[in-house]
Write a protein that binds this DNA or RNA. Structure first.
Lengths: 109, 109
DNA sequence: TCAACATATGAACAGTTATTCATATGTTTG
DNA sequence: CAAACATATGAATAACTGTTCATATGTTGA
């Protein structure tokens, strides 16, 4: 009797989270899987910043940043506040930090 | 004096990790950003399993699983051992678990 | 060594994604 | 209200990604 689990389909299958949850999880990580968005999040670690300046720091167009911010916003990873014409973006909560830290740990091993 | 950081380009820029690290990080998360791979990892939480059975559990072709396993392997997220004709895959370490747990936390908030 | 089996790999294709360009929305000031 | 500015959005495009099919590699036992 080996220790592999090929015998126990039903057991393993039952232990899996439901498909919707797995889908959501993948969707979440997809968001972190892009250099522009990772950079955005890292910049926002330091505090809020307006769109224009985010674009300059990243070296991409205002439009590109805005599109990416929309994705981050819709996943509730960032939030924003308006001040006159300017909109300042910031991190929504600390999950972002902890998620990224987990990744960094793996890379630095 | 507001609290935003638009003034402090250089400061924020200096605080950013180097591009290579940010790239690697994005590459890592990209791997988690796919339902098939997330499922694979979840299955392997329960123990090692051979390719054929992984394919059956996932409902995709043997080839597809093999391609995905190659990606997971090259990122050192899984490892394998051969036993005759069969190859058993398993998680490489516990980082996978902690990374995924961070994601789950965000989803369940 | 040959047949049967398990896994890996390459090419092709369909679907997705990130960017840019052009333009729209919304805000402030004269 | 009009002009100037900041951001958002839609369409188009180029690049990337995951799957399948066909086939190659590698292992075992007769």
């Amino acid at each position: 009797m080996t220790e592999h689990h090929c015998d126990d389909f039903e057991g393993v299958k039952a232990s899996l989270p439901d498909d919707e949850m797995l889908y959501d999880l993948a969707e979440l990580y997809k968001i972190f899987g892009d250099t522009t968005r990772i950079k955005l999040l890292y910049i926002l670690f330091e505090g809020e910043m307006c769109v224009q300046h985010l674009a300059e720091l990243l070296g991409v167009s205002q439009s590109a940043v805005s599109h990416q911010l929309r994705i981050l916003k819709s996943s509730r990873l960032v939030r924003y506040r308006r001040e006159g014409k300017t909109i300042y973006y910031s991190l929504a909560d600390d999950h972002v930090r902890s998620i990224i830290e987990c990744g960094v740990e793996h890379i630095n091993e």
